[in-house]
């Protein structure tokens, strides 16, 4: 079924376009070149700040979509920040942490009452701690990549999601984040299985068009912006 359907669909497209076969020659080269060069379009002014203003844009826009943001100056401040967040939200003293090399450096012994475990979630965890790949100032958006160090379930199943983002990882526009990602893509050229762009906590307007937070994903999104 599939191969004949494929042929028929492609055939109908080509007939509508007045062609008898695939695009060839110069036209094809032009399309190949467009795919490789990935022309950028208009980048809005609001995505074009640099330096401290860029960081400030990211923070204020993330806060504008109900994320909470906290500056920290070293990874060693993470345990305190996490413990305070849990206490403020009346949450049990347990965190499921992504098995990320950076997070593995954190010394949790200063907070002995906090239970920290690593791995994916199966739905029992109230709070997760993960590492972002980038922050996008344009809309206060986090970019997180799925991979061995980053289970996707931690981004969605817990009620609260705490994310560590380095200041130097904040970029202006979505396109800047893609370029940063392309530098990281392996030799096979295949993206991470999932790239999550996350802009504030989960929400729904499905009942009477009134926005409520915490629909299926996290109710709280807390971003720790780490100076580096």
């Amino acid at each position: 079924m599939s191969s004949s359907s494929r042929d028929e669909i492609l055939g109908k497209i080509r007939k509508a376009r007045g062609r008898s076969g695939p695009i060839e020659g110069f036209e094809r080269d032009r399309l190949d070149a467009r795919l490789k060069s990935r022309p950028r379009g208009i980048i809005p002014q609001k995505a074009r700040n640099t330096g401290a203003a860029l960081v400030q844009d990211f923070i204020s826009r993330a806060q504008g979509v109900e994320a909470t943001v906290q500056d920290i100056s070293a990874l060693s401040e993470v345990p305190d920040a996490v413990a305070t967040y849990l206490a403020d939200h009346n949450l049990p003293a347990a965190v499921k942490m992504a098995p990320h090399a950076d997070l593995a450096q954190i010394d949790w012994t200063q907070r002995p009452t906090l239970t920290v475990s690593e791995g994916r979630s199966f739905g029992q965890d109230k709070v997760s701690l993960t590492r972002a790949f980038a922050g996008i100032a344009e809309t206060g958006t986090l970019m997180l990549l799925a991979g061995p160090e980053a289970p996707t379930t931690l981004n969605f199943l817990p009620e609260h999601h705490i994310v560590v983002l380095k200041r130097s990882e904040i970029v202006g526009a979505y396109e800047d984040a893609w370029d940063k990602l392309r530098d990281q893509v392996g030799p096979d050229g295949i993206l991470s299985r999932v790239v999550n762009m996350i802009t504030g906590p989960s929400r729904t307007g499905d009942i009477e068009q009134t926005i409520e937070l915490g629909a299926h994903g996290p109710l709280g999104l807390h971003i720790l912006v780490l100076a580096d």
Binding site: R61, T139, V194, M197, T199
Partner: peptide, 10 residues
């Protein structure tokens, strides 16, 4: 300005 979750799956 942007939806909460924009997810790219490959």
């Amino acid at each position: 300005e942007f939806s909460a979750y924009t997810t790219f799956s490959t």
